[in-house]
Design a binder for these strands. Structure first.
Lengths: 394, 394
DNA sequence: GGGGCGAGCAGGCACGATTCTGCATGAGCG
DNA sequence: CGCTCATGCAGAATCGTGCCTGCTCGCCCC
């Protein structure tokens, strides 16, 4: 079917002859059946079909649908109506190619294994991703989940996606993809301070020092004399900052530090480290575990040593898991509020993409939330009143 | 011409003048600065720059990088080297426009509120999405998280993304986006049987009848005489199939059905329904809850009525949450194995996209997994042996 | 020695939309 | 009455890549 036949079928007479001459270098011989061939070869209606059916030019259709030009309302309505009738959907690929904006935001998290997400931070990641997705969708963007770019995948997915920006959770020291993206002019916002001189556009992180100090103060107020720490051997900023804050607090409080470090991505090592910590001659009477599974592991270790929680041992760990609401006893957790982080990261990133807001780089520090439960409240010996439970705000 | 000569030719700057004039309409007088203007306007190197630097044509560059044409290895290597040196990254948008394949797969879940995910199925969704992401990345695709298309978003994100296919979790009866996608020739695979005559390309679902029958058999073997059901008022296939299987099992077993239905997306109504079920005059001695929070709610209701679990009441619920490993007592759960579902859905979808595998439509039924814990094992009065725990295979 | 042949590679159209430029027309004003 | 300006819209360049077409050699064989 030729364009002329389509035009005939559209109902409008020969008012618009849709120039039979091709664009620039038309047919040298006669080998081209038509300048534009069958317009809707794969079944989808294109902008040309809408223009032909509405009896206007392509420009008018584009302007009418995007609200761009200066058109009378009658034309605008007419074009929209015809487009609707034909079921016209603009090609996202063509729009992206022309405008340079895809409406897509990459989301990636640095991993240690082969899975795309780390399991230890799973609850954190899930909530952060949920909030980020919501925030992005509310501003017209969609999130693309991408693998950590350590060893490039069989088909490098990264270069096959047109991204307007990227969110990196827990960026590693010398992430090659991040530096290349930034060099390409694509904004990158990280959740967590970038380790080295990684040139991110902005970053968001919790106030880890403040969180640890407040947490240790809380334990001390509950009667702790010697507070231990379960920390990691890796050099990421979360571990480093938290450990440093602990050491500084100990120095201020005049307490000798009591801590055990283990490779945080090894789920088995955590249980061993928890056991070691409680087996020490200078056994602490309160413990803070930096990682999600520490609460369960410490609770099990305490049972093995016959320690009651919270009577003999106060317990706090950093986790987003709801498991600690129902353990026996419920365990106090430090929540990093991943939802707020995810939302903030997306707002900063889209601001950078659209060139609004303060000049970059921006670094934003977010507060944490201590969810106090039974495990960190030493019951007063005289009262049998149930321990107060602070309801979470969210 | 040898590769060395080509390399020589690459040094001659006169080959490509790279017009110093601005892009299109810089000067009104001499309005045509050159046929292609400045080659790399935004800083990125294009395929033309690689061709010029390597002293070959664009076709040769494209063929060399994609392994398509018939080129000697020397040329191929030379082009790759030049491309690497210039930091050339092919434009994903242009490739998508030209080839019609974006390498992107949409992922959406039908929701009831404003959030992009339902919270009641949160653990299910998280695990399913994780597995789907892994599977897609392994085959060179990336996942895009998209909102449920009930009321179209402010800027309809769906039409702004070029998708090769879509995964729909829990499709609703007359999902308009699904039918439009299928009409456009884009494959759609659903997790969960499509409700009405929704024309999905394929679907994957659990064998809900078999799961419910096995689960009720297990409860009966543990000594249950009257098994109750906590079900939903909504008409989705999961609820419908599970309830029907329950009724059929009761008929076969000669037991009167005892069930309460409530709106499953209302978290408060679940607790009320659990309470109602245990307050009935024909109170069941075992309960199966179809939804994730039912276990916690039933446990709380049982405590209120002074019922011990499992001595007075056997409990099972369908959930992926790890919370039920640590409740007091641990609660037996029916796992739908969302990881396996997510992987299968992606395999079917990519097979459909790439046109391999059996002819569509395909429907695949997957087994479930009953994780037996203390709550469904009535301890034998003579023995004090600890209840056996069946380790999960994954 | 010339014609067929096949390897190697250049030219150029096409994908489908955005948008810049410019023409035609009617209204306003000196 | 003529000039200017605002308005409404058509034409065409362009985004960057893939691939189809065809040209040019060098080689082999009759």
């Amino acid at each position: 079917m030729t364009a002329a036949e389509k035009h005939q079928a559209s109902g409008t007479p020969a008012a618009r002859p849709t120039a039979p001459a091709g664009p620039a270098g038309a047919a040298p011989g006669e080998r081209c059946p038509g300048p534009r061939g069958g317009s809707t070869r794969r079944g989808r209606a294109g902008i040309r079909d809408v223009a032909a059916a509405a009896g206007v030019s392509i420009t008018t259709v584009s302007d009418a649908l995007n609200g761009k030009g200066r058109l009378p309302d009658a034309t605008r309505r007419h074009v929209r109506e015809v487009a609707e009738r034909l079921g016209y959907r603009p090609s996202a690929a063509a729009r992206t190619l022309r405008t340079g904006k895809s409406g897509l935001i990459g989301l990636t998290v640095t991993t240690y294994g082969e899975e795309p997400f780390t399991f230890t931070e799973f609850a954190y990641f899930a909530e952060m991703a949920r909030a980020a997705t919501s925030a992005a969708l509310a501003r017209g963007y969609a999130l693309v989940i991408l693998p950590a770019p350590a060893r490039h995948s069989p088909f490098d997915v990264w270069s096959n996606v047109a991204l307007d920006g990227t969110v990196v959770i827990d960026p590693s020291d010398q992430d090659p993809v991040v530096s290349e993206l930034v060099r390409s002019g694509i904004p990158v916002v990280s959740d967590g301070r970038p380790s080295g001189a990684l040139p991110v556009t902005a970053w968001v992180d919790n106030d880890h020092e403040e969180a640890v100090h407040a947490l240790l103060d809380h334990l001390a107020e509950s009667g702790a004399r010697r507070i231990g720490l379960l920390t990691g051997t890796s050099t990421d900023t979360y571990t480093r900052l938290s450990t440093r804050a602990y050491l500084r607090w100990c120095e201020n409080a005049g307490q000798d530090p009591v801590y055990e470090a283990y490779p945080a991505h090894d789920p088995c090592a955590g249980a061993v480290a928890a056991d070691r910590l409680l087996a020490r001659p200078d056994r602490p009477d309160a413990v803070y575990g930096l990682f999600d599974p520490n609460g369960t592991d410490l609770l099990a270790a305490a049972r093995r040593y016959g320690l009651r929680v919270p009577e003999d041992l106060l317990l706090v760990c950093c986790s987003e898991s709801t498991v600690y609401e129902t353990t026996e006893p419920p365990i106090t957790t430090l929540s990093l509020k991943p939802g707020r982080i995810g939302n903030t990261v997306i707002q900063l990133l889209i601001d950078a993409i659209e060139g609004i807001g303060p000049p970059r780089p921006v670094q934003q520090v977010m507060p944490t939330d201590l969810l106090v439960r039974t495990s960190s409240l030493r019951p007063s010996p005289r009262t049998t009143v149930a321990a107060p439970r602070r309801p979470g705000p969210g």
